[in-house]
Simulated assay, not measured.
Amino acid sequence: MTECIRFAVVAILLSLTVIVNCSEEESTGDMSKRVVPTINKAEEFEQKLPGFLNSNKTLCVLLDYDGTLAALCDNPNNTVMDPELEKNLHCLAKNPKVFMAVISGRGLKDVEGKVGIKNITYAGNHGIEIQSPDGSRQDYQLPANVQKSYKSLVDELNKKLNKNGAWVEDKKVSLTYHYRDTASELVEQQKQEAIEIIKRHGFSANQAHAAIEAKPPVNWNKGEAALLILKNNFGNDWQSKTSVVFAGDDTTDEDAMRSLQGIGKSFRVATDPKIETYADFRLPRQELVHDLIRWLCNHSCQS
């Protein structure tokens, strides 16, 4: 009889383990990259997202800048937003039922100057720098040894690879090595050498559009920044109070898309129809971001 009881207890415990594991899987959802549906025209936002914009919740619009709000340029200093898009962004920012943040790989003051909208949250350097609408800052503090390594990294890249049209964009805590203007026969060699130098200094090297981004070796990214921004503004129960939209075009934006997967709706700007992403939808053209913002603006004005 004792053996039967022991067997029954073990069976019950195993059953409970299975139930817990299944619950965990259901709560976390499918956190893998995959090929996602494409939105090709303006009217498809409403068609494919019926009822998502709940008027009882605050609409939180989180956006990347380069390649998302502004088309990519050979020189990042030359990027500008489309006038109509800028107008609709201002419309959203003024709406008391809308919260807006721009989370960029650029330095904070750089992206703030490019967007130029007051009373919104800005995050620069992939979320390491965060500035609230009132001007207060909540930056992620890099360890002293990482700051020292960063200075050495910038110096070495400038000394060895600031040539043939390539240059180093120093953003004080992270950098971007641009090679868009480098002759095609020289690109691969210089790119690989840049990656080697970046990794040797302990930084991660991420492929961007005709560039390599060097990020510090810390557990912080656009996803962590997005969650912190939402928590700071709406509390620990922000999910029940908000409808979150995120749009981005680059590999670093995938961190935010992953963090928001199953919670909000995110959009990856990408021409590749087979790209795998954590986003919910693919936008094959940057101009479709204009349609997304217009749709959000029109809905928020009606609610």
Results as ranks from 00 to 15, higher is better:
residue 233 N to D: 12
residue 186 L to C: 08
residue 43 E to D: 15
residue 108 L to P: 08
residue 41 K to D: 13
residue 180 R to L: 00
residue 233 N to Q: 07
residue 141 Q to W: 02
residue 248 G to T: 02
residue 60 C to A: 14
residue 126 H to I: 04
residue 161 L to T: 06
residue 48 K to H: 15
residue 258 R to S: 13
residue 116 G to L: 09
residue 256 A to T: 05
residue 254 E to L: 05
residue 3 E to D: 15
residue 50 P to T: 06
residue 55 S to F: 02
residue 50 P to C: 08
residue 91 C to S: 13
residue 135 G to V: 03
residue 56 N to Y: 13
residue 208 A to D: 00
residue 19 I to R: 12
residue 31 M to R: 12
residue 105 G to P: 05
residue 18 V to N: 09
residue 221 N to W: 04
residue 281 F to E: 06
residue 290 H to F: 01
residue 20 V to N: 12
residue 190 Q to A: 09
residue 158 N to G: 02
residue 24 E to T: 10
residue 74 D to F: 04
residue 300 S to Q: 13
residue 174 S to T: 11
residue 210 A to C: 06
residue 179 Y to C: 01
residue 133 P to Y: 05
residue 84 E to R: 10
residue 67 G to D: 02
residue 264 G to E: 03
residue 31 M to A: 11
residue 23 S to W: 13
residue 245 V to Y: 12
residue 292 L to I: 13
residue 79 T to Y: 00
residue 27 S to L: 14
residue 111 V to L: 08
residue 97 K to E: 02
residue 281 F to N: 09
residue 141 Q to Y: 08
residue 100 M to F: 14
residue 277 T to A: 04
residue 295 W to F: 15
residue 286 Q to I: 04
residue 256 A to R: 02
residue 11 A to E: 03
residue 68 T to F: 10
residue 284 P to H: 05
residue 235 G to D: 15
residue 69 L to G: 08
residue 108 L to R: 10
residue 254 E to C: 11
residue 248 G to M: 09
residue 131 Q to D: 03
residue 120 I to Q: 07
residue 166 A to V: 06
residue 206 N to D: 01
residue 148 K to I: 08
residue 268 R to P: 01
residue 38 T to P: 00
residue 150 Y to K: 02
residue 25 E to F: 15
residue 226 A to M: 10
residue 129 E to H: 03
residue 236 N to W: 08
residue 26 E to F: 15
residue 127 G to I: 07
residue 146 V to G: 07
residue 226 A to W: 04
residue 241 K to C: 06
residue 225 A to W: 00
residue 114 K to H: 06
residue 75 N to K: 07
residue 106 R to H: 09
residue 244 V to T: 15
residue 146 V to I: 12
residue 119 N to P: 07
residue 156 E to C: 09
residue 79 T to R: 02
residue 256 A to C: 11
residue 68 T to M: 04
residue 177 Y to Q: 02
residue 295 W to H: 14
residue 289 V to C: 04
residue 73 C to A: 10
residue 224 E to G: 07
residue 234 F to C: 13
residue 121 T to H: 07
residue 189 Q to M: 14
residue 192 Q to I: 11
residue 45 F to L: 05
residue 76 P to W: 01
residue 83 P to S: 13
residue 162 N to I: 00
residue 104 S to P: 10
residue 124 G to H: 10
residue 254 E to D: 11
residue 290 H to V: 07
residue 250 D to W: 02
residue 182 T to Y: 02
residue 233 N to R: 15
residue 200 R to L: 03
residue 289 V to E: 06
residue 48 K to A: 13
residue 55 S to T: 13
residue 227 L to V: 15
residue 85 L to H: 05
residue 63 L to N: 05
residue 215 K to Y: 00
residue 97 K to I: 00
residue 207 Q to A: 03
residue 255 D to F: 11
residue 257 M to R: 02
residue 222 K to T: 05
residue 22 C to I: 15
residue 275 I to V: 14
residue 150 Y to M: 01
residue 202 G to M: 14
residue 139 D to I: 06
residue 256 A to W: 02
residue 149 S to Q: 15
residue 61 V to E: 01
residue 105 G to M: 01
residue 50 P to A: 07
residue 298 N to P: 01
residue 186 L to K: 13
